[in-house]
Nucleic acid binder design. Structure first.
Length: 487
RNA sequence: GGCCCUAUCGUCUAAUGGUUAGGACACGGCCUUCUCAAGGCUGUAAUCGGGGUUCGACUCCCCGUAGGGUCACCA
C-alpha cells in the first residue's frame, strides 16, 4: 500500500526470562513498552522467554505477573492469555521455531555445527591469543559438511547471508552502525532442541506482529546479527528503541541484583504506592517536555512519547521515590487511603484509623508501612493509648517552669473546654474557644501544658487536634490528671 | 584487544545556534510555630578537556578523557 494507508497499530512486548526476581530495570522496560502501546491504543504482550531451562527459577513467571499487576501494567496477551498467534510462553512454541529453522535449512541458510565443544574452545583461544574477536564464520565447515542432515543432536547455526557493515535506525539513539565483525554464524537452535533467544525472539516478534522492540543497550551490539536473521527469514525488521540503563549510585554500572537492586515487590511490602514507582521510573530516561513531575498511570498513558526518551543512563534515587510516594498518598481520598492501609495494620491498629486520625496519618507517613509506627512507642499518634506514666515536669514549659501557673492555665482550659458541646468538639471550635485566653497569657505558657497534658508527649500534634482525636471526655480527664500530677 | 554507545547542578532532568543555563529531589537559610513535621519563600550547586565552524556553541564537527555495552549451545 502507499503512505496514505493508515499506520499499523502499535504492538509492543515485554519479554523477560523467568530466571529470578523482577527488579527496577526490568520494570522500567516493561513500563515504557506498555506506555508506548497504550498511548497509541495498541497492544501490549507479556512473553515469557524460557528457552534456557537450566537457568529457570521456579515461581518466576508468577512473580513477573504479580509485579506487573501491582504496578498496573496490564497485558493484552500473556502466559495465561494466548493470542491468535498461540502461546506467549516460548517453551510452548517449539514447533514454530522448528518450522522456521527447517525453512532456513531448505534455503541453505542454516547448517548443523559439526565441531565439538573442545574444538570451538580452541578456536576461541586462538582468537584470544591474537587479540582478535572470535568469529565462528572464519571456521565455517566445508560445503559438504554444511549440507549434512540436521538430526537435532548438533546445534543449528545461521549462515549469515551477507557480510558487511550494518546500518540501522534506532528510535532513541538515531542512526547506528557496526562493523562486519558484529555479524557471525550464531546458533539458532541449541542441541537440547530449544531455540536461542537470538532466534526465538525474532520469530515471535514477527508472528505476534510486534512493531516496536524496546530493550536495553546491551542489545545494540547484537543488532547486526538480528538484521542478518531478518534478512535470511525475509522479515521486515520492527522499529528498534534502545532504552537507557538504570545505573547504580556510583554511575559506573548498570544497577544489578548485586548492587542492591531490590525485588520490586519489596517496595510493595515496604508500603510504596505503585503510582509512586511508575512515576519515578517513567521519569528516569524520559521527560514530558513540561515541568510536571507528578503523574498517575493514566496521565502517563496519555502523554508518553517515545521521541522524548533519552540516551544516557540515570540513577534510581530512593529519596525521590519517597517524595513521590508522599505526593501520591496526598492525592488519595480518605477511603482509598484506608483501603491501601489495610494490609499494613493489625486488627487492633485498624480500629485506630478513624476519620479523626486519618488526616494526621496521611500527613505524617512516607510509606504505608510507616502507619503502624505512628501508634507505637514515640509515634505521633501514640498518645491515643494510655499516657498516665509521663513525668509531671514535662508539663512545664522550658521558659516558664512554674507549677502554679501551669496548674492555673490547665484549670482554665478545662473550664473553657467544658463549654463546648460534644457535637461541636472540633479542632476549630476548640481553638476558637480558648484562643483569647491563650493570647492573653502567652502561647507557650498555656499551649505547652495543654498539649502535654492531653498527649503526654513533648512531640505530638497540636493540642486542638489532639483533644479532638481523643474526644471531649478523654481530653478533660487527661487535663484533670495533669493538674493532679502537678500538685 | 576489535567493534559500538554515552557525557548539563550530588541525583533525576529542561534548554534541538542567541536563556541571567530552567525545574524537581536532596542539602542550607528565613517565615510560620507551644513541640515535631508539613507548608510558604529563598540560597548553594552543572554544560568532562582541548581544538575548530559561526557574529554567536550545552547544542554542529574533530581530537582527547572518562564511563558503559558487546565479542556464549544466557537472555
Amino acid at each position: 500500500m502507499t503512505s496514505e494507508s493508515s499506520p499499523k497499530p502499535i504492538v509492543t512486548r515485554f519479554a523477560p526470562s523467568p530466571t529470578g526476581m523482577m527488579h527496577i530495570g526490568g520494570v522500567r522496560t516493561a513500563l515504557f513498552a506498555y506506555l508506548l502501546a497504550r498511548k497509541n491504543k495498541g497492544t501490549f504482550i507479556l512473553r515469557i522467554e524460557d528457552t534456557d531451562k537450566e537457568r529457570e527459577v521456579a515461581g518466576s513467571i508468577q512473580h513477573i505477573q504479580d509485579s506487573l499487576s501491582w504496578l498496573g501494567i496490564e497485558w493484552d496477551f500473556g502466559p495465561t492469555k494466548p493470542g491468535p498467534f498461540g502461546s506467549c510462553i516460548q517453551s510452548e512454541r517449539l514447533d514454530i521455531y522448528k518450522k522456521y529453522a527447517l525453512e532456513l535449512i531448505a534455503k541453505g541458510l542454516a547448517y548443523p555445527d559439526p565441531y565439538t565443544a573442545e574444538e570451538l574452545a580452541t578456536f576461541r583461544a586462538e582468537a584470544d591469543m591474537a587479540k582478535k574477536p572470535f568469529l565462528y564464520r572464519n571456521h565455517r565447515p566445508s560445503e559438504e559438511l554444511m549440507k549434512a542432515p540436521w538430526d537435532g543432536t548438533k546445534p543449528l547455526r545461521l549462515k549469515t547471508p551477507t557480510i558487511g557493515r550494518s546500518h540501522w535506525h534506532d528510535a532513541v539513539r538515531g542512526d547506528l552502525q557496526a562493523g562486519e565483525e558484529a555479524q557471525d554464524d550464531f546458533i539458532i537452535i541449541k542441541s537440547d532442541g530449544y531455540p536461542t533467544y537470538n532466534f526465538a525472539h525474532i520469530i515471535d516478534d514477527h508472528e505476534m506482529g510486534v512493531t516496536h522492540i524496546l530493550r536495553g543497550e546491551e542489545f545494540i551490539s547484537s543488532t547486526p546479527k538480528y538484521i542478518s536473521l531478518y534478512e535470511a527469514l525475509g522479515f521486515t525488521p520492527p522499529i528498534f528503541a534502545t532504552l537507557p540503563p538504570i545505573l547504580r549510585d556510583d554511575k559506573t554500572k548498570k544497577l544489578g541484583k548485586r548492587d542492591g537492586a531490590k525485588d520490586i515487590l519489596e517496595y510493595k511490602k515496604e508500603g510504596y504506592l505503585p503510582e509512586a514507582m511508575t512515576n519515578i521510573l517513567a521519569l528516569i530516561g524520559w521527560n514530558p517536555g513540561t515541568e510536571q513531575e507528578v503523574f498517575t498511570m493514566d496521565d502517563l498513558k496519555s502523554v508518553f512519547d517515545i521521541s522524548k526518551v533519552q540516551k544516557s543512563g540515570g540513577v534510581f534515587n530512593e529519596d525521590k521515590l519517597a517524595w513521590f510516594n508522599r505526593e501520591h498518598i496526598a492525592r488519595l481520598s480518605d477511603d482509598q487511603l484506608i483501603d491501601r492501609l489495610k494490609t499494613f495494620l493489625t486488627p487492633d491498629q485498624k480500629k485506630l484509623i478513624t476519620h479523626r486520625t486519618l488526616p494526621l496519618v496521611k500527613e505524617k507517613i512516607v510509606t504505608l508501612g510507616d502507619a503502624p509506627k505512628l501508634f507505637d512507642g514515640e509515634g505521633e499518634l501514640s498518645f491515643i493509648h494510655d499516657i498516665s506514666d509521663y513525668p509531671a515536669d514535662q508539663l512545664l514549659w522550658k521558659k516558664n517552669p512554674d507549677k502554679e501557673i501551669a496548674k492555673k492555665h490547665l484549670r482554665e482550659i478545662h473550664v473553657q473546654l467544658q463549654t463546648i458541646s460534644d457535637d461541636s468538639f472540633t479542632p476549630e471550635n476548640i481553638k476558637n474557644t480558648v484562643w483569647a485566653y491563650v493570647e492573653a497569657h502567652g502561647k507557650g505558657d498555656v499551649l505547652w501544658p495543654f498539649r502535654v497534658a492531653v498527649t503526654g508527649k513533648e512531640k505530638s500534634p497540636d493540642p486542638f487536634m489532639s483533644s479532638y482525636i481523643l474526644g471531649k471526655t478523654e481530653a478533660l480527664k487527661r487535663i484533670d490528671m495533669a493538674v493532679a500530677k502537678l500538685a
